[in-house]
Amino acid sequence: MTDPPSKDKKDFVTGVDSNARKSPRRVVFVTRRTSAQVKAVDEDQVQTFPEVLFRALVAIEVLSILLVWIALLFNAPLEGVADPSHTPNPAKAPWYFLGLQEMLHYFPPVVAGVLVPTLVIIALIVIPYFNINIEAEGLFLQDRQSRLRICYVVAVAMSLFLTYFHVYVALVPTLIVIAFMLLAAQSSPQSASPFRRYLAAQPLSYWIMTWFLFELVVLTVVGTFFRGPGWSWVWPWRN
């Protein structure tokens, strides 16, 4: 639906985008002295109503159906009435705090219960305010040697620290993440394997967060399933 430009009278061309259903109509005025140039491809967009809204509703409903079936099939735990004189062994916090409780087993409460969670929250909050987190450069793509050196120092320091406090549960994930970091250091965007290309592209923030996620999952799982009376190690498949 383009109007034929009237060449004689005006020194500009006008145009109307034809795809009216998908994006609002845009009227273009291009002066003769400049040439029209598209700087960014405008993305295909959909109306929130009804496309997005109903998809969201369907997603919520699918989850609800799942939860309804879980609620029908599995009863929520309920134990005897609260009795301050009978301490169950072990007394466990809700599962999402069991990572913390697991740490309380190793460190003094002021460290495991206060310092660590506070630092985690602060760290989470400040993530978007540090450029180091915003750069998407692979960690070892620049300055490889010195960064690798720092990586070694940090790895040895953390291993010693965790070994000193006998926190083998946290040591294992740390060592695994460090192993992958070293693998990343040996990789480059030109590596043959796609996995190594992927590793090479990961920035520092990725490694820290992955380490945190790994520790969180391992500590929580250990606290939930592998701890018995007196917070001793038990195998969940053995009664």
Binding site: L78, E79, G80, A91, A93, P94, Q101
Partner: peptide
Amino acid sequence: DQLAFWAITVG
């Protein structure tokens, strides 16, 4: 219940 009481106590 016991679960609630001791989880909150520990927490």
